[in-house]
Design a protein around this nucleic acid. Structure first.
Lengths: 333, 333
DNA sequence: CTGTTAGCGCGTTCAC
DNA sequence: GTGAACGCGCTAACAG
């Protein structure tokens, strides 16, 4: 059976399609009995409105495009959860476009958003993205864009980010408190703003206290593991470790275990994973869910008010340091 | 500037809209010079086709709905990657609907798919889903549905799954090899087919060898951790552990560490995470990416051939057991 | 080779 | 309180 249309209902009810249209949206003009009759037929026919038709008329799709470099990460899932959760409340649905860390894919994804007539775009860029020329199509069609998480410098679009410097500073203070003298910095891709910001901030804070640092760049957990192993074996002066992400944390944890070392470690993480490391790790919690929610809120502002202009500075999600309590380690019952 | 339409191009080119339509899709009837002229104007106007209009006419949206219980960080991301990667090749985009493990949300998500006129639905159900009545709307509109990962018993729709029994059997054989006598089964939600299948298969295999088993049901890592802790403290005969997922694994690992136990453990997992547990864990690898790809392929068959009928048995992704090599533990460099 | 016409499903404006 | 008519952007059938 095909999809029932308003016309089908009108035929069965012996009324005009426009009457059905009004009845279905509780227009006050329609008499109660006619309305009820029409609604009964609608449910009986299992009528569902055709959003393509509505979209064509109304020129807004109630869909927003979510363009991300990759889903297969620790952080992105909770960000996506936050975004969908908030937008759903306002009746928006999400078209997810994966750029597979490829600038051409990203460009195409922006175009797909335009074709679909999305009401807005949330964009986290690939490692290869160096400018925003490919956003021009969307910009000229007046589709609002909000950048989040993985961004590059610009001053055209609103931007939502973790307070990376703040988070790194919190980590530095922890290591300073522990009287560390030589800190190993386990970092991610050095191309990304997020890596640069965190590295810069922690280096500055530690160096101000005359604490020596050694950076190390790993693209995934396995690399973090093996590089950290090598460092721990070759340099016995290391008495503190900073991990900038969940990926690096897992590698650090394995390396510490493998080399049977106990070294003050602090990481930046999204979730409960640090509590389940062995032993539980101290971490600075950055809330991906909150980031997603905020990004969605900012985009909504642009959608609802076309005169709303981008502010000239990023929106920030602040972080907090979480230390494993004894209670937590021994018994969570 | 508003979105340019075919009409706008026609006006500037001094031709009829239908001519523009044909030129843009390289219809052979159109002369080369007219076609080139039209295309030039199109790019100049930054024309992007209005998919809503095309959808309205052609009655297929090139969008498929992906309805999932939640985007947890372990398994789902790689499944989604597989799905998007394959469907993208065929020009489909993905509307992601998160049911937040809530049956009402799931029902609404199915309805949203219908409203959007998706060409097909990929569905992984919530913990609360006990039947498929809520799929009727989609079924009657002849929207093909393929179930994957989290499913419940039925024989109407095609279904793509990990070979759960096979995976559990591989785990059982490992524990049998290790001469275990009492195995703790750390399982997920007992309502789900995936849990039942894995529990049933490992129980059957172990019991056949007179190996005693104790089941334990946890909804997340933290629960797995605390429940396992309690068991390990109260029952000292446990000499083997089976974890059915990444979630349970992380909890098991923490519990073993906390109680300072070394017990033969094997888990079913998607990725590299087991290799980074402390010590590295033996695991049976189930390939989420492959699962996503296969589910998408099966759905495509239904979309491309409306006469294609569901086969009366699940499609399966086979698994393989991965044991940490000494090499891997000590040095991956 | 190109123009004309009609209609996909819906909501809105204008009648009555 | 309800019906008739139009148009959103696009394409396919039919003309010429």
């Amino acid at each position: 059976m095909k999809k029932a249309t308003i016309k089908d209902i009108a035929l069965l009810a012996g009324v005009n399609p426009s009457t059905v249209s009004r009845a279905l949206k509780d227009h006050p003009d329609i008499s109660t009995d006619v309305r009820e009759k029409i609604k009964a037929i609608a449910t009986q026919l299992k009528y569902t409105p055709n959003l393509a038709a509505i979209n064509l008329r109304s020129k807004n799709s109630k869909v927003i495009g979510l363009v991300i470099p990759d889903i297969n990460m620790y952080f992105m899932p909770s960000v996506i959860s936050g975004i969908t959760q908030l937008l759903h409340q306002f009746g928006f649905n999400i078209l997810v476009l994966n750029s597979q860390d490829n600038i051409e894919k990203e460009t195409e994804n922006i175009r797909i958003c335009c074709n679909h007539g999305v009401d807005g775009i949330l964009l986290s860029v690939t490692n290869q993205t160096t400018n925003y020329n490919h956003l021009q199509i969307a910009y000229e069609q007046e589709i609002p864009i909000v950048l989040f998480d993985k961004t590059i410098k610009q001053n055209v679009f609103d931007e939502v980010n973790i307070n990376d410097s703040g988070a790194a500073l919190q980590c530095a203070n922890y290591l300073i408190d522990k009287h560390c003298k030589h800190v190993l910095l386990v970092l991610g891709n050095p191309q990304l703003k997020i890596t640069k910001d965190r590295e810069l901030a922690i280096n500055k804070a530690l160096n101000a206290k005359k604490i020596f640092t050694t950076p190390l760049y790993a693209n995934n957990s396995m690399e973090a593991y093996s590089l950290t192993c090598t460092m721990l074996q070759n340099d016995l002066t290391i008495d503190g470790i900073f991990g900038m992400s969940d990926e690096t944390m897992v590698g650090i944890n394995a390396a510490l275990y493998q080399n049977n070392k106990k070294i003050h470690t602090v990481v930046i993480s999204d979730g409960q994973l640090p509590a389940l490391m062995t032993p539980p790790m101290t971490y600075v919690k950055h809330d991906g869910y909150a980031l997603g929610t905020l990004a969605a809120k900012v985009l909504l502002k642009h959608i609802q008010d076309s005169n709303y202009r981008a502010i000239n500075q990023p929106y920030w999600i602040d972080t907090e340091i979480i230390q494993p309590t004894n209670n937590q380690q021994v018994n969570t019952q």
